[in-house]
Design a protein around this nucleic acid. Structure first.
Lengths: 244, 244
DNA sequence: CGCTAGTTTGAAAAAACTCAATTGGCGTGG
DNA sequence: CCACGCCAATTGAGTTTTTTCAAACTAGCG
């Protein structure tokens, strides 16, 4: 198998799961010219205000997007796992309105916009699949607004855990113990909470027998009850094959 | 001028401003078959879980999207003004993951998905313009996450006022006094605050000489300082013609 | 004129934050 | 192999912000 084929394979699997499209439907994907870049932990990958000409496909590791505030706080806008394209929106909005950074050491494929445009022109099914991906990303952002705006600290933390579990499960990465390299401080920056509050909330969830989070791994002991606490409805992830 | 042409005219102007595309580029827009529906104040237009087959174009009035929480709270996810399409994402995600409702009496054009798909197939520039619209919508949602998650009550309220002003200005609706039919309770549900807090915050902003909000109208007396308080950077609205 | 929705204010309670200090795990250099 | 240093997790205590509850007030409308 060609190198590029193996690198875009995770993207194929992702789009296949999300849209039901077959190898034939997604024809051309393996021809995308990708350049691989490796990052260490906590490295900034692109910055608010940058004008970019490529998209990033996560091959390995966890990645996040964030915005800063004037007084030095940080809001994480989303987490990305292998198979995700954290900045697909730059395809049509090339100026970054937020920053992207690695959480863990990460391996990313950089795909030139021009190559994606070309391919989309020749393959409308792919164009549609990518558009759909950006719409799911938007749906997740909206749900975070609800989460941060109206849920209690307990519900917020439970919610992000449910989301990460569900998304990891969808790419086959949710075998227990589930890899969870996100620090409590990062959970706080994502859910609009302080580290202290995240810590106490995790303790409460642990003491309630719902979860174990330690050594960068997590176990969900009672998903149903966790989802209950989180007021979690997976609809917003649009993973259901019935909806296409 | 044909009825449909006049109804989609606001959409044309909107896409023209956003993308720079001309009448010729957006050819076919005026042929979209639209059905006009009128709503009173505070009417639900579509509901979380619904499966829809058309998009809504706001012709007149203010519209919002929202999600409820189990304990009866509500989070508003975005506001829409004339020229906006609040549910463009249903084009590829037909199951509503939130609800849409009118704020004021509103006149909406309902456009069948199939008609939009057809047109997009024949006119790739239009497809691209609509994709871009959904990406801006997503960018706004991300910025709301930051706003609700990390800004103080004062900054949040100032921020939403800056956003609404900027977006209304972009469609020529920001002549002072600026129409502002959104209630304090709705501002609260949008910014993750209680009515009481919104009220006190507006009072503070008024006493600081920044704004006047009354009788469903608002005046911004010192936009620069309001943006300062809001930590507002209009980049996320992607209105700059330089970026395309 | 009375009703209703929306705004305004006061006061007490709750949630979450900040500050500060301690603990634990892990990698690295001696 | 151990000690050191660093980052992350943990805990206590006091403070701040925001919420909740309750009650008035106001403006538009039939």
């Amino acid at each position: 198998m060609l190198k590029t084929a193996s690198d875009t394979d995770i993207l194929f699997r992702r789009l296949h799961r999300s849209t039901g499209l077959s190898v034939a439907d997604l024809e051309g994907l393996e021809t995308l010219p990708v350049r691989i870049r490796e990052f260490g932990r906590n490295e900034t990958i692109s910055r608010e205000g940058d004008r970019v000409a490529h998209c990033l496909l996560v091959l390995d590791g966890f990645v996040m997007r964030f915005q800063d505030t004037r007084d030095g706080k940080r809001q994480i806008l989303s987490f990305y796992v292998p198979g995700d394209i954290p900045d697909l929106q730059t395809l049509h909005l090339p100026t970054m309105d937020h920053s992207v950074a690695s959480i863990t050491p990460a391996r990313l494929a950089m795909i030139p916009h021009a190559a994606i445009w070309d391919l989309c022109e020749r393959n409308p099914l792919l164009a549609r699949a990518l558009w759909r991906e950006t719409l799911i990303d938007a749906s997740i952002a909206r749900t975070w607004v609800r989460c941060v705006g109206r849920l209690s600290a307990h519900a917020r933390v439970a919610h992000i855990l449910c989301e990460l579990y569900t998304r990891l499960d969808a790419v086959g990465l949710a075998e227990e113990p589930i890899p969870m390299p996100i620090t409590q401080s990062e959970f706080g920056d994502a859910m609009g909470l302080s580290v202290v509050q995240v810590n106490r909330t995790l303790r409460d969830l642990r003491e309630a027998g719902l979860i174990t989070v330690q050594k960068r791994q997590m176990r969900l002991h009672d998903l149903a009850r966790l989802q209950q606490v989180a007021d979690f409805n997976p609809l917003y992830l649009h993973l259901d094959p019935a909806e296409r």
